[in-house]
Design a protein around this nucleic acid. Structure first.
Lengths: 124, 124
DNA sequence: TCTGGACTTAGAGTAAACTCTAAGTATTAC
DNA sequence: GTAATACTTAGAGTTTACTCTAAGTCCAGA
């Protein structure tokens, strides 16, 4: 399956602007047809989803760009990519633990308020 | 114990600029001495730590501001504050789950690279 | 032939949350 | 008496990641 930028935009839930922006930044490589029109493939979809996972863990565009560049170069850069991912993972695990703690704190706060207000509300 | 802005800044790891900014925005209420110099207390410390937990879960300044305003008003606003926290909690739980999934994805990626590279690296 | 959707470059605008500067004053500690 | 630290207002600057606009071209389908 292939998709125009308009279709693809809906599928991956990124605006056409953002798709062109990511391409310009080197995050995605997109094929073109005879008229220079972008043709997105399912492979592009998988790649973008992967990128969005990285983004989701707080990776900066800068690092995603580096990762993508290495990806485009080929297998010679696997070690670099692995190092980047491992380094990033450390940060994510820390962030994850911090978020867990803050969520706990939030729950405590909520419990406190519910007790103060006399148990007349449920947790949802 | 009380602290000058300089001391307090180090303790809570926020710049003096940021402390004044937060105060101006209504996030913190700080006492002053006879010379109009800020006197931070341990109570301020607890409050800021609480705010930072909210911030950590991605609450916007705008919402923190609202929460703080209600806090300054007093007990009449408990229901509002509880509602805000519960509403926020929903978003945080979603975000938390998304982060968990993305971390899993990241781990899969790392495993993939390690296998490709022939198991010659450990997980740290 | 006209509408819709695609393309380009180049640059401006936006939002959040700081972060800093200027320019001047006041107090305290040595 | 000078250095360190604090205070004020007001506004400018920074960073990230988009997000959009302008102004023009190009091509396919009804």
């Amino acid at each position: 399956m292939t998709y125009s930028i308009g279709e693809f935009s809906k599928i991956v839930r990124l605006s056409e602007h953002t798709l062109r922006f990511y391409e310009k930044e080197g995050l995605i490589k997109v094929n073109r047809d005879d008229n220079n029109v972008r043709i997105y493939t399912d492979e592009n979809k998988l790649w973008i989803e992967s990128l969005l996972h990285l983004k989701n863990t707080g990776m900066s565009l800068k690092d995603m760009k580096q990762f993508a560049m290495w990806g485009h170069v080929g297998d010679d850069t696997m070690e670099e990519r692995l190092a980047l991912l491992k380094n990033h993972r450390k940060k994510v695990v820390e962030e994850f633990e911090k978020l867990r703690q803050s969520l706990e704190h939030l729950d405590n706060k909520i419990n406190f308020y519910e007790n103060e207000l006399g148990d007349c509300f449920s947790k949802n």
